[in-house]
Write a protein that binds this DNA or RNA. Structure first.
Lengths: 270, 270
DNA sequence: CGTACTCTTGAGCAATATCAAGGGGAGTGG
DNA sequence: CCACTCCCCTTGATATTGCTCAAGAGTACG
């Protein structure tokens, strides 16, 4: 049996250990994005320097000056309510995003109306990198719960990358990481059984939750069985059956969207 | 039925219209790569400025000075014989590559020895972009026929990107394009039937051949049925059956590795 | 000219999709 | 606060697709 850990290890996203709950809720009021450098001195709660999720937006060690420049670029945040879209396929590509609070799915819609989920993005993860190549977004990004993102105008980011080599390398790593993540998923879709896919999905989510400082054993799914199925190349009934099967085997404990991983070793060995 | 054209259109790789056959075969003798800028005045046949495949390595309009700098970076080519590896998973990541002549497959090998083909790369296409994120290669790149690649040291490329904005944007587009290409493949693996996958594979290859100036209707496959199957998430017998089925339907005409697309409309509508 | 690889085709089987029915929970309006 | 409705989830029965096992023919290369 193919170990699902191969897929697991393919996702090397850097995330912050904890999510700050002290962020000012009024900070939701997005400041308008501008293509000219905004005034420095960002509003408390929306700047990068004290953001708990900074490790996704910036390389490890930046000088105070460089940090201030990043703050100046990431000048707005945006609130997206559950079910609303952050962007749609075909939208002009201007910015990439970092999920600050909440959870998104990205969906490709075919001409025949058929939809496929291409990814789930939780707090601390990048969004929109696929738009760079064609000047327009390739998929819809839809919030699975009330969420907040940082808006990073891509042209300004490229300018910053020009001046700060560490930033340039970080961006390249983020993009390359996205390529590796997807090739891991391809492997999964190409070679794994339904049970292995569901197991790999849960383990992947588990490790991402852990990186954020949450329990890796117990969490709530924000997506439906249908969305999971679309992502994994399975029908919703099959996903449901696999959940039941893993539960009967004593590997996990599920109750609707609540998931408790009882034996991650066994889950990885499915 | 899902149209395979969605996958087709997802691949937006920029390729050159023709392949120069007048390149000096002796140019295969690779000059050693160096991390310090080599002397300018590159050997005829190995520099970028007169390479027919330049559109993959460089943005549309570069000044003579900028072109010279690119020539200076892409200082070596490498010959890889059929069956040999260009790089292996785990190798230290130093360079990206551009296929100049020939054809490669990229393969991920699992710990259990199971292999999966993650992509085929023909002349004019980039190779190795997935290594950026982790400082080491994530897959093996194996030549399917005697091939030649340009070696592009990534640190030098990043330096050039620093100075030439158009180059930076081009690199970002290449990487993002790789992300989009893979999400198209994911869609294929997740939603298409065996017949649709094979049809999409042929159409994709056809369009890439056309972009290179070859016939889009008739070409030789460099890969085996097993490699195609691995790439498409199918068994080799299934691939073979689908070829036969498409032939019976009068959509294609195959004889082993030789393929003739008789009705691309119908192929896309499968 | 032989050997090893590759491709084709058939028969039976296992995994997953499809069709169908019913239960449970969250949000909404009375 | 309760009842209603809509979604979402679960489970069963059946259909279909693609896989496995097997045999034999074609093809490339030393």
């Amino acid at each position: 049996m193919t170990s699902v850990l191969a897929y697991e290890s393919a996702y090397k996203s850097a995330c912050a250990p904890t999510v700050s709950s002290k962020a000012n809720p009024l900070a939701y009021l997005a400041r308008s994005a501008t293509t000219s450098p905004p005034p420095s001195g960002a509003v408390a709660g929306t700047n990068c320097s004290d953001c708990s999720l900074h490790s996704i937006c910036m390389p490890a060690h930046l000088s105070a000056t460089e940090l201030a420049r990043l703050d100046a670029i990431v000048c707005s945040t945006r609130l997206v309510r559950r079910g609303e879209t952050l962007y749609r396929a075909g939208d002009k590509f201007k910015s990439i995003y970092a999920v600050r609070v909440g959870c998104f799915k990205t969906v490709i819609t075919h001409r025949d109306g058929h939809e496929q989920v291409t990814g789930f993005h939780i707090a601390g993860e990048p969004l929109g990198l696929d738009g760079v190549c064609s000047d327009e977004q390739n998929c819809d990004a839809i919030a699975l719960e009330d969420s907040k993102v940082c808006v990073i105008p891509f042209d300004l980011l490229e300018d910053l990358c020009h001046d700060v080599k560490a930033m340039q390398q970080h961006l390249h790593r983020m993009m390359s990481g996205e390529i590796v993540r997807e090739s891991g998923l391809m492997m999964m879709l190409g070679t794994m059984t339904a049970q292995q896919r569901v197991a790999a999905f849960l383990l992947n989510l588990s490790s991402r939750m852990k990186t954020r400082g949450y329990s890796s054993a117990e969490f709530n799914l924000r997506m439906t069985r249908e969305e999971i199925g679309s992502y994994l190349g399975l029908k919703l009934e099959t996903v449901s059956r696999m959940f039941s099967k893993l539960q009967q085997a004593g590997v996990i404990d599920t109750n609707g969207k609540q998931v408790h991983i009882l034996d991650s070793e066994k889950l990885a060995g499915v």
